[in-house]
């Protein structure tokens, strides 16, 4: 399978990438690791006429302790996130989940920013970012802004990023409580049929779901049930509330609803036991 024709520019700096975006606007897509975008282009589900390659902007690959938060450069590869000691110490769910993506080969190239910007509801990191109330830092030629994870994912393969925006950094909070990411998949390296992130924070629990709708979803019914004193098993019964899971050869919508409850129970029990 060969992608449709496109033009290619190699960005030499973040500024250069922004200039190229200004110049080409809606026609262009940013290429980071390419491991989400290129498969879609090969299937011709995406046909950008211009690719702006930001894959060599090494200064956008970092993980640093910023006091209250950990800052992760958008071009940090999954492999680096997975192995990061800073993340393992302060926000281990992010390192763990990066290690659940695809396989070794994919994790060598895929980036955290690319994974979020792609906006695929079956992908793992967006759900974790939602459960963590992470902040996404976005630059354009008119300046920098920060978007909360719960406002970032706006639709199927759609995000709050505009055509001239560059996602530069992800900021995740330091965790002191337990956490869990439960991923149920078919073949070893597949996308999640359903995934559940659970994080103990601020005296309560945040729970978010992968592949249960057009965007990653917060399981607010579960969170409320826990807040009103229910145990994990009882609260998990609310996991499918207000979801609209897809049906595909891997599972019907009903199967996914049942799976969401089981995985939420497991995630809560693991998070509370950690």
């Amino acid at each position: 399978m060969i992608p449709a024709e496109f033009d290619y520019e190699l960005a030499e700096s973040g500024e250069h990438a922004l200039q190229l975006l200004e110049q080409h606007g809606d026609e262009a897509k940013l290429l980071a690791g390419g491991h989400s975008l290129l498969p879609l282009m090969k299937l011709r589900l995406a046909t950008p006429s211009m690719l702006i390659d930001i894959g060599r902007l090494d200064d956008m690959s970092y993980i640093s302790d910023d006091g209250d938060a950990i800052a992760i450069g958008a071009l940090t590869r999954h492999e680096v996130v997975e192995g990061s000691d800073v993340l393992k110490e302060h926000c281990a769910i992010v390192a763990h989940t990066a290690g659940e993506i695809g396989d070794r080969q994919v994790r060598h190239f895929g980036t955290i920013g690319g994974s979020l910007a792609h906006g695929d509801p079956a992908s793992d990191l967006p759900t974790v970012m939602l459960a963590l109330d992470a902040q996404v830092v976005v630059r354009s030629s008119s300046g920098e802004r920060t978007v909360a994870a719960n406002e970032f994912f706006t639709g199927l393969f759609e995000t709050a990023l505009g055509p001239t925006d560059l996602l530069t950094e992800i900021r995740v909070p330091k965790l002191t409580g337990g956490w869990s990411y439960q991923k149920f998949h078919h073949r070893a390296q597949d996308w999640a049929i359903v995934g559940v992130a659970a994080v103990q924070r601020n005296g309560g629990a945040s729970v978010a779901l992968t592949n249960m709708g057009e965007v990653p979803l917060r399981a607010s019914g579960v969170e409320q049930a826990l807040a009103s004193g229910n145990d994990a098993a009882a609260a998990a019964e609310e996991a499918a509330e207000n979801t609209s899971p897809p049906s595909d050869p891997f599972g019907s919508a009903d199967y996914r609803r049942a799976l969401a409850k089981v995985l939420t129970r497991r995630a809560l029990q693991e998070a509370m036991g950690r």
């Binding site: 290619y8 190699l10 290429l31 390419g34 491991h35 290129l38 498969p39 390659d53 894959g55 492999e79 695809g102 396989d103 070794r104 080969q105 994919v106 060598h108 190239f109 073949r187 390296q189």
Partner: peptide, 24 residues
């Protein structure tokens, strides 16, 4: 990018060469 038959090393890292552009 599922089966891995096209795996090569790029700067020492295993990579699926069906999911990389030659320009990359």
């Amino acid at each position: 990018s599922t089966c891995g038959a096209c795996t090569i090393l790029v700067n020492g890292n295993a990579a699926k060469s069906c999911t990389l552009l030659a320009v990359q």
